[in-house]
C-alpha cells in the first residue's frame, strides 16, 4: 500500500497528540504531573496543536476536503466515520478543559481531563480499526495492529509529557510510563513483524481467478501497458532489504534510543533531564514516522494478485 505522506504524518502526529491528552487527563487528577495551571495549559495546547495538525494533514488526502463534514454521518457502519465522530467529540471536553484550567476549577478540570482522555483513547482505537477491518490487506488484519496503534500513541504521548515535565523538574511519572510503553512497543513491533513475515497470503492468483482447477496461474498479458490508480495505490513495493533496514531504524531510533535517554534523564534532573527528554521525544516521533511508513509500505493488497508478481 502506498504510504501517502498525509496519512503517515496524520496518524503519527495525532496519535502523539491523543497520547499526550490521555496521560494529561489521567495523571493530573492523580497528582503525578505538576498540578499548576501553566503546565497543564502548555501540555493541553501542545496536544491540541498536534491533533489538529494531524487532522488537517488527513484532509489533504481527500479528493474533496470541503465535503469532509459528510464523513461524520455513517458511524453505524464505518470506522472512518466513527474516528471522525470521536475526534470531533474529543474536542469538546479538551476545549472546555482550557477555561477550567485557567479559571482554576479543579473538580471540573479533573472531570473534563478524564473525558478527554477517554475520547483520545476512543479516537486512536477507531484509527486502528479502520486498518484492522480491511480484509484484503492481511498485514493490517493482524491482531496486533489495533493494540499497536494504542500503545504507540501512549508511548509517544508519554514521551512528550515527560519532556514537558522535565522542563518543570518533575517528569518522573511520565518518564517511567514512556519507558514502560516504549519497551512494550518494542516487543509488540517485533512480534508483529515476525507474525506478518510468517503468515500465509489470504488469497492466491489461483483463487483470485478461479483457474486453480487447471493448475498454477501465471500472468500472460497485462490489461494495460502503463500503470494505473490501483497499482500506484495498492501495488507499492519496497525491496525487502530496505524493509529490514528500516525496521531496525524504527526499533533503534523510535524505541531503544528514547528508552535509554529517558533512563538517563530519570536520575539526572534539571537542565540535563530536560535536554535528554526533549531528544527522546523527538527521536520517538521520528522513529514512529518510519514505523508508520513501513506499516503502509509493507502492506499488500489482494488486487495485486491479478497483476504480475513484480507488482505484489
Amino acid at each position: 500500500m502506498r504510504p501517502a505522506p498525509s496519512i503517515v504524518v496524520f496518524t503519527t502526529l495525532s496519535g502523539a497528540g491523543y497520547g499526550l491528552l490521555f496521560w494529561l487527563g489521567l495523571l493530573r487528577p492523580l497528582g503525578l504531573v505538576p498540578g499548576d495551571a501553566p503546565f497543564a495549559v502548555a501540555a493541553l495546547l501542545l496536544a491540541l496543536a498536534l491533533v489538529t495538525a494531524g487532522l488537517l494533514s488527513s484532509l489533504a488526502h481527500l479528493g474533496h476536503p470541503g465535503r469532509a463534514w459528510r464523513a461524520l454521518s455513517q458511524w453505524r457502519s464505518s470506522w472512518l466515520s466513527r474516528e471522525g465522530v470521536a475526534a470531533v467529540a474529543t474536542y469538546v471536553p479538551a476545549g472546555l478543559l482550557l477555561p477550567a484550567l485557567l479559571l482554576g476549577w479543579q473538580g471540573a478540570a479533573a472531570a473534563l481531563g478524564l473525558l478527554a482522555a477517554a475520547g483520545a483513547a476512543a479516537t486512536v482505537y477507531c484509527t486502528g480499526m479502520i486498518y484492522a477491518s480491511l480484509k484484503p490487506v492481511r498485514e493490517w488484519r493482524h491482531p496486533l495492529v489495533v493494540p499497536g496503534y494504542l500503545l504507540l500513541a501512549a508511548f509517544s504521548g508519554a514521551a512528550l509529557l515527560a519532556m514537558l515535565g522535565a522542563f518543570r523538574g518533575d517528569g518522573a511519572a511520565p518518564m517511567a510510563l514512556a519507558i514502560l510503553a516504549g519497551a512494550a512497543g518494542f516487543a509488540l513491533k517485533r512480534a508483529y513483524w515476525r507474525g506478518i513475515d510468517a503468515a500465509p497470503p489470504v488469497a492466491t492468483p489461483e483463487s483470485a481467478t478461479g483457474l486453480g482447477v487447471i493448475g498454477t496461474v501465471r500472468t500472460l498479458d497485462p490489461p494495460h501497458t502503463e500503470t494505473n490508480y490501483l497499482l500506484r495505490e495498492m501495488g507499492f513495493r519496497i525491496a525487502r532489504r530496505h524493509a529490514a533496514r528500516l525496521r531496525r531504524v524504527a526499533l533503534a531510533a523510535g524505541f531503544a534510543a528514547p528508552i535509554a535517554l529517558l533512563l538517563l534523564a530519570l536520575p539526572a534532573g534539571g537542565a540535563a533531564a530536560a535536554a535528554l527528554a526533549t531528544l527522546a521525544a523527538a527521536l520517538a516521533l521520528l522513529g514512529l514516522l518510519v514505523e508508520r511508513w513501513l506499516m503502509f509500505a509493507e502492506a499488500t493488497h489482494t488486487v495485486t494478485l491479478y497483476y504480475p508478481p513484480s507488482a505484489r
Binding site: H61, L62, L230
Partner: peptide
Amino acid sequence: CIGCGLCAWACPYG
C-alpha cells in the same frame, strides 16, 4: 463522495 479512497482499499478485486 469525499474521495478518501477507503472503499478502493476495501475492495479485494480492484
